[in-house]
């Protein structure tokens, strides 16, 4: 199984199909290729109903419980910060009444989805990599296979569903927490008019803005679960390597989440 092998490109040598490319570019392409392969594998299993419901629900609960408190607090605090900045600037522009709306708009378009995805990557994604990497190092993945159980079906599909289904929910909560954070600031900070904080929101915030933000998180959930599981499964069998794989998983998640964010924002919010 290709995803169980550590990702390596043989040293530049003729006859190696990656030869014309610089090593870094070759590695990057090979890595993306693996994620696409793993994704296709997972989707084909889901299409054939090879989904263990009990394990999937357990993963949703794990991702949700692990990430909800930090995701909410992170969103709340960043809502407070941007609420403060917006209040000052809206005041200077003479549109203080719109401060609340601006917070809501920023949270649902960008900060909610991305911050919550980062929290889930750091909290749940890293745990997935560490768990699968340890299973790899102690031959438990081989034991699964010897018991006629496909590790992708048994381990990756539930984690994929857990992350993909929970991320929009967590983000929705995060969006609310952010707007609330802005309000808290408006009560404390003198520049904002707390009484009009919420009034401009319903009139100006469109449903699509929120929905498009949640759609983005579906893709972020895919990125997190696939990267985290791939790093765990392809981990070399050593405890130091499990640590490295876990760090790598979080770093790759953050970079790929932002890369996906750029593409998705252009697609989902045209003009």
């Amino acid at each position: 199984m290709i995803v169980l092998e550590p990702l390596e490109i043989p040293k530049d040598q003729p006859g190696n199909p990656w030869f014309p490319l610089p090593r870094g570019a070759a590695l990057f392409l090979a890595y993306l290729g693996r994620l696409v392969y793993l994704h296709g594998y997972v989707l084909s299993l889901i299409a054939r109903r090879r989904v263990d419901l009990r394990l999937s629900v357990f993963q949703m609960a794990t991702v949700g419980v692990a990430s909800l408190p930090i995701a909410t607090i992170t969103a709340l605090l960043s809502g407070m910060v941007i609420g403060y900045h917006f209040a000052v600037q809206a005041g200077q522009l003479g549109v203080s009444a719109y401060a609340g709306w601006l917070v809501a708009e920023t949270m649902s378009r960008e900060l909610g989805p991305v911050l919550v995805a980062f929290v889930v990557a750091a909290r749940a994604g890293s745990a997935m990599t560490a768990e699968l990497g340890t299973m790899k190092a102690t031959e438990q993945i081989d034991a699964l296979r010897a018991l006629a159980t496909d590790p992708i079906e048994y381990l990756v599909v539930p984690r994929y569903l857990g992350a993909v289904l929970m991320l929009p929910l967590l983000t929705f909560v995060g969006d609310f927490a952010g707007v609330l954070g802005g309000y808290v600031m408006s009560v404390i900070a003198p520049q904002i008019n707390a009484r009009v904080y919420f009034t401009a929101i319903p009139a100006n915030l469109e449903a699509w803005t929120i929905i498009a933000g949640l759609l983005k998180t579906l893709v972020f959930g895919m990125v997190i679960s696939l990267v985290a599981c791939h790093e765990g499964l392809s981990c070399r069998p050593a405890s130091e390597e499990v640590g490295r794989a876990t760090t790598r998983a979080v770093v790759y998640c953050i970079m790929l989440i932002y890369a996906a964010d750029v593409a998705l924002t252009a697609i989902l919010y045209p003009g």
Partner: peptide, 17 residues
Amino acid sequence: APIRRKMGMCFQYAALF
């Protein structure tokens, strides 16, 4: 999978879950 269902393996270091 169907082939492995008829096989069993005892690992050197047990490899328990």
